[in-house]
Design a binder for these strands. Structure first.
Length: 545
RNA sequence: GGGCCCGUAGCUCAGCAAGGAUAGAGCACCGGGCUUUUAACCCGGGGGUCGGGGGUUCAAUUCCCCCCGGGCCCGCCA
């Protein structure tokens, strides 16, 4: 899990709110105290990619780092949370779901590529804003720094200088840590080619310190197994003007850490090598003690079901927020830090319900025996609300109840039907529809629409069943009261020697495509008698009995 | 080649990071209740060598080591 952290003292004192985040914050503060570093503002950073669709793992990284920043504040220190957008990176692969025509932009900085959706300034902007939109919905507060801006304004100038001056040592560190020999000859800097505009096709070979310049030639590079041919241009890039960027692995992270005085950054295990290298560069080249880290495992896609019809949608925050609340998504990301978890959109209901359980614990409706455990769960709840928990508990309705109701709600009077049922079930006392309830119903409808829409099922009818249905149709024509229709179903069954239970099952299958459903009498009225009769007649025709 | 994660009820998992009492939940299953049967809800029930083996300890699902099984990440891409 976290190799860099030694066990804390063994006392049973609860730190902060008892969560993992509180403990990390505690360690950061202790560490800074020992290092004699400035404790006035403790900065936490998250880097976010701009070259593809942000997925659930992207927001997870940000949320976890942010939680640590919050935890620092909870312990009485100032903390600033920085989101660093890697929008000067080049495009290395056209993401699934985007037009192949984008291939002509491979190797270009993502901010120099037009937005395929035409709604943002660039491809990179589009991707970053998808993530920022999700962060905003969750209420995560951050200071955004874009790479393009940072390089343009010279924010990293001193660090770039130090790294280029010591390029040889940087190359050796990389070779020692990863076996990668590339930077033993190339400078750890990618100039943007002044001729073709690409960033990944250039090779920087000489540093002219006095002129702040890096000489390069656009000779091409292998990217994701494909050779990107360079344009052959030879030029010079002024690093103080943002005419290129540091190589990510070869010191850009370290440069950011020192320039921004970052004290903590959690990262996914795919970046293990890069962090190792950058830690050394930070310490050995830049003379800056690198931030404390925590490594987390990745989320895996179960991807059993179609998530969305719209192309290119992997499991994104937007998808989650269609079916679940921001807090439920934060619960997913904050609940556990370690351990690979395979998740899919089908987990949303579970997290929605779990959040309700946590809320019960937080408000003392449910008692937990162990005080440490209780503190931890209450703490987790607070972090899910980013330390701004509601004053009163919300209405708790199991997710599957709502999706069930949404599924069978008769067209045209959905809300009325759901409200009435919730009252019957005892969840609702009056007709007041709170904002929270409205959202929950909306999630449920989205869920049903995408995954469980009712489809009339073809049901193979036996002779008696067909007769019973014919009888029932006649009866329904003549009756308008729900309870009488309910009785009529029993009569129709018995008159044809059918077990009512089985007959109900058959009817549910015909009308809803599932073997069970709401009390039929009232439901038939709600659906509209004529609709039901037509559905029953269709089933007779298809069965040919 | 290097590193990491997981293995707990039929299924999906929680608990393990600061070791502590008969190891939990949901779903599924069985029985009962809600006097016309569904859904929902309530009550009760069965079900486990906590992957295996060793070690530390008064005490291990929890900590350490080894093994087996499943999976992931990295390998001159950032």
């Amino acid at each position: 899990m976290m190799s860099s952290l030694e066990p804390l003292d063994k006392t049973k004192k609860i730190i902060g709110h008892g969560t993992w985040y509180d403990k990390v914050a505690f360690r950061i503060i202790e560490r800074e105290r020992k290092l004699g570093g400035g404790l006035d503002v403790i900065r936490v950073e998250s880097g976010v990619a701009a070259s593809g669709f942000p997925h659930i793992g992207s927001i997870s990284e940000v949320a976890r780092n942010y939680a640590v920043s919050l935890a620092i504040k909870e312990q009485g220190y100032k903390s600033e949370f920085i989101v660093f957008s890697d929008n000067k990176d080049g495009l290395r692969k056209v993401p699934e779901g985007l037009p192949k025509s984008l291939e002509k932009y491979l190797g270009y900085p993502v901010t120099d590529i037009p937005d395929p959706y035409n709604c943002h300034q660039s491809y990179g902007d589009h991707m970053v804003h998808l993530l920022l939109e999700a962060l905003d919905k969750c209420g995560i507060e951050y200071r955004l720094i874009s790479a393009v801006e940072a390089y343009g304004k010279g924010l990293l100038n001193r660090e770039i200088l130090d790294i280029l001056k010591n390029a040889g040592s940087v190359g050796e560190i990389i070779c020692e840590e990863t076996g990668q020999k590339k930077y033993l000859e190339a400078l750890p800097y990618f100039p943007v080619c002044a001729s073709c505009g690409r960033i990944y096709t250039t090779k920087a070979y000489e540093f002219l310190q006095k002129e702040n310049k890096v000489l390069y030639s656009c000779e091409g590079m292998e990217v994701k197994g494909k050779w990107l041919e360079g344009c052959g241009h030879k030029g010079e890039a002024d690093y103080t003007k943002g005419e290129g960027k540091l190589s990510w692995k070869a010191g850009e992270l370290a440069a950011r850490w020192r320039a921004l005085e970052i004290k903590f950054e959690a990262y996914g295990k795919d970046l293990t090598d890069s962090i190792k290298v950058n830690d050394r560069i930070s310490r050995e080249i830049l003379g800056y003690e690198p931030p404390l880290h925590a490594r987390y495992e990745m989320f895996l896609d179960k991807s059993g079901r179609k998530i969305s019809k719209s192309a290119g949608n992997v499991f994104t925050p937007q998808v989650w927020l269609r079916y679940g609340s921001p807090q439920s998504m934060l619960l997913l990301t904050l609940k556990r830090f370690a351990g690979t978890r395979s998740i899919s959109v089908t987990d949303v209901p579970r997290y929605m319900d779990e959040l309700d359980e946590l809320e019960d614990i937080y408000f003392g409706r449910v008692k937990i025996g162990d005080s440490i455990e209780e503190a931890k769960l209450k703490g987790l709840y607070k972090y899910c609300w980013l330390m701004k928990p509601p004053e009163k508990p919300s209405m708790h309705i199991p997710y599957n109840v709502l999706t069930y109701l949404a599924k069978v709600a008769p067209e045209g009077s959905e809300i009325e039907f759901i409200i009435k049922k919730l009252k019957d079930y005892g969840y609702l006392k009056d007709d007041v529809v709170t904002e929270d309830l409205k959202k929950r119903v909306e999630y449920a409808f989205n869920w049903v629409k995408d995954f469980e829409e009712i489809t009339e099922k073809e049901v193979e009818l036996r002779g008696e069943e067909a007769n019973a249905i014919r009888h029932l149709i006649q009866k329904i024509h003549a009756i308008d009261e729900d309870e009488k229709i309910q009785s009529a179903i029993f009569e129709a069954a018995r008159e044809n020697n059918l077990n009512p239970k089985d007959f109900f099952k058959t009817l549910y299958n015909i009308l809803l495509g599932s073997p069970s459903g709401p009390r039929l009498g009232p439901y038939i009225i709600a659906m509209g008698k004529d609709n039901v009769i037509r559905a029953l007649e269709r089933s007779l025709e298809k069965s040919n009995v």
